[in-house]
């Protein structure tokens, strides 16, 4: 690992010093050095400007949402909140955190995210490792199966019917099993195992008498930390934000609904016009169903997004060492 760190440090601080004893070359080098510096300076300026611009356009809406969630309701409805909070108040948070549904949703989402991610990573790893071995006999067959299933997807209703016949409806397994293996993730992992880990390492291990399991656990996984953390983060975010599977497969089990589903119910209730209003014949959702307030919404938004950001903050340090997907070997 330290090798890679060193290389990175060097890469970030290229030294322009090159030892050469010949005088004419020195003069030429000096000329090159001047050109480099100017060109490089311009490039540096441009890239810095781009990055600053990026920071602004990304940070602004995020700050806005946070500010809106702690601004007073009055300030929000009259649009006075521009960047910073106006009339700070935690009342929205108090209401939101006292809603039973929110706490229940949190618990469920945590469960789905943790368990779902573990299952997903496990399955994807044991799926990717064998097909990354070039001399694995069934490699092409298995790969073809994965590819075919990736291309053709049956759709919501047939999938529902299958799960139904397995008795998974209204059962937490229906959600855990959905999207259990992401085929594209499998390919990313496979490429990583195949291209970024020297085959010699495996050969050496085989000579020492290690079986494939040990190769996987002791060699492949530790060397793939970066890719693994990326894929894991993909999985975590996917599970955290999902609501559709729970909505369809757990209709009667409200005690298993994730946070995002409650959030959706709250946010969408007032912006959704029912069928009869579209037909022009009624205002079903206007006068006979009550609406939620703006204030609550922003608070709920913050509450449902902040934890996942925290997780990301913890996991992201593994990215430093770099993901080697199809990189050229020296």
């Amino acid at each position: 690992m330290s090798n890679i760190d060193e290389i990175q440090i060097e890469a970030e601080n290229p030294s322009n010093e090159i030892a050469a004893p010949v005088a004419p070359v020195k003069r030429m080098r000096k000329a090159n050095k001047i050109q480099d510096t100017r060109g490089d300076k311009v490039l540096e300026g441009i890239t810095t400007a781009i990055l600053v611009f990026l920071l602004i356009i990304v940070a602004y809406p995020v700050i806005y949402v946070c500010s809106a969630s702690i601004s007073s309701a009055g300030a929000l409805t009259s649009g006075r909140v521009v960047l910073w909070p106006v009339e700070p108040t935690l009342s929205a948070y108090k209401v939101v955190l006292s809603m039973d549904d929110v706490l229940l949703g949190y618990k469920n989402t945590l469960f789905y995210t943790v368990v779902g991610t573990i299952f997903q990573m496990f399955m994807q790893i044991i799926c990717a490792y064998p097909i990354s071995k070039r001399n694995f006999q069934g490699r092409s067959v298995y790969t073809k199966v994965i590819v075919v299933t990736m291309l053709v997807s049956a759709g919501m209703i047939p999938m529902y019917l299958v799960k139904q016949s397995l008795g998974l409806i209204d059962n937490v397994w229906a959600v855990l099993v959905s999207g259990l293996i992401g085929s594209s993730n499998v390919f990313i992992l496979r490429t990583n195992f195949r291209n970024s880990i020297p085959g010699e390492l495996f050969d050496a291990a085989a000579i020492d008498g290690a079986n494939e399991f040990q190769c996987l656990v002791k060699i492949a996984l530790p060397l793939s930390k970066a890719t693994l953390s990326v894929i894991t983060l993909y999985a975590i975010v996917g599970h955290w934000n999902s609501y559709m599977t729970a909505m369809i497969y757990l209709p009667a089990r409200q005690d298993l609904w994730p946070l995002q589903l409650f959030l959706r119910n709250l946010l969408i209730s007032s912006s959704n016009i029912g069928a009869s209003a579209q037909e022009g014949g009624g205002n079903a959702n206007a006068s006979n169903v009550a609406e939620a307030t703006e204030q609550l919404r922003y608070a709920l938004i913050v509450i449902s997004t902040v934890p996942i950001l925290a997780v990301y903050g913890v996991v992201q340090k593994y990215f430093k060492t770099g993901v080697m997907v199809g990189s050229v070997k020296g």
């Binding site: 399955m123 999938m159 299958v162 099993v177």
Partner: peptide, 16 residues
């Protein structure tokens, strides 16, 4: 061992 590893994912693929 490799085939064993593939068994579970393949089971998933077939079923779902």
């Amino acid at each position: 061992i490799l085939h064993l590893m593939m068994a579970l994912p393949m089971f998933y693929y077939v079923l779902f």
